[in-house]
Amino acid sequence: MTDERLARAGVLRRLLIRPELGAVVGAIVVFAFFAAQSPVFRSLDGVANWLDPASTLGIMAVAIALLMIGGEFDLSAGVLTGTTGLILVTLATEYGFNVWPAMLVSLVVALAVGLLNGLIVTRTRLPSFIVTLGTFLMLQGVNLGVTKALTGTVQVGGLRQAGGYASAQAVLGGTVEVAGTPFRVAILWWLLVTAAATWVLMRSRPGNWIFAVGGDERAARAAGVPAARTKIALFMTTAFAAWLVGSMLALRYTSVQANIGIGQEFIYIIAAVIGGCLLTGGYGSAVGAAIGAVIFGMADKGIVFLGWDADWFKFFLGAMLLLATLANRLVRRYAEEVRH
């Protein structure tokens, strides 16, 4: 082999091993597909429309991506968005809390759940898949049980009358006008979360530790990385994201169904995988997960714009997931291939 050949392979390799590559290509294809057939889809109103589901999903997908890069899963994250919303609305409507302190209480509960997940996983070395499946079921039960016991129904509502609603709604649940079109403020939060997560991953010491504990925890520990603390922090970050999204949705709709968020946990994981995260950990990107969420949002709304049956969305999701996993496997093999 000559050095020239290696140099060229190096550039190509560097491009190809960007974890977000597959998601970027996928997003362009999906956008082109829907934009070509639906003028509404490509209008500013349409963009605002499909960025909305992308944003709340994206915040969760980014947090889950960090956790997955760190080598763990969190199946309780979806239900936790329901738990935090329910706590917020229940405290504000049944117990006369102002919205802000009610949000603080739900944040403390969310972080406690994250801490608990993290502690159990790091202390027992049990797979996080099982541990968080447990917390997922427990939270699901608590959400329904407590809501029914308190209200006799399976939803809580009436947040609009609570003190502090207007200000909290403006910050987390409102809209921002861009060129005359209202965009959800959640989109800004999503961009902020993605930027912050990218900075942490690429430009901070904990970012290096996240890649390391997900890549090879034993080796990371041998190099002096605080592996347990890193993982617990990741679980708490996911819980924080669930709190943020749960509060946004509660403020937007002013009521929360007790069964909300169930099934979402897999959508987060799917978005993260489409964004280039490996299921085995140690590899992935926050930007990729955010783009994965955009693909999801475009398909979700695009299918409606085209007047198709919404059931096709599930088919699309499955196909995207398969394609993404196949692409990721190729990338990983390429990146890990040993040269002699």
Partner: peptide, 28 residues
């Protein structure tokens, strides 16, 4: 077994656990 992480770059591995800092950031 080398205690190196295969999926991480050479420079990230080189400084793993002893990353140089610049303010709050990892001085990449």
């Amino acid at each position: 077994d080398l205690a190196m992480i295969p999926l991480m770059s050479v420079w990230r591995n080189f400084f793993l656990g002893a990353e140089p800092r610049r303010g709050l950031a990892f001085d990449v």
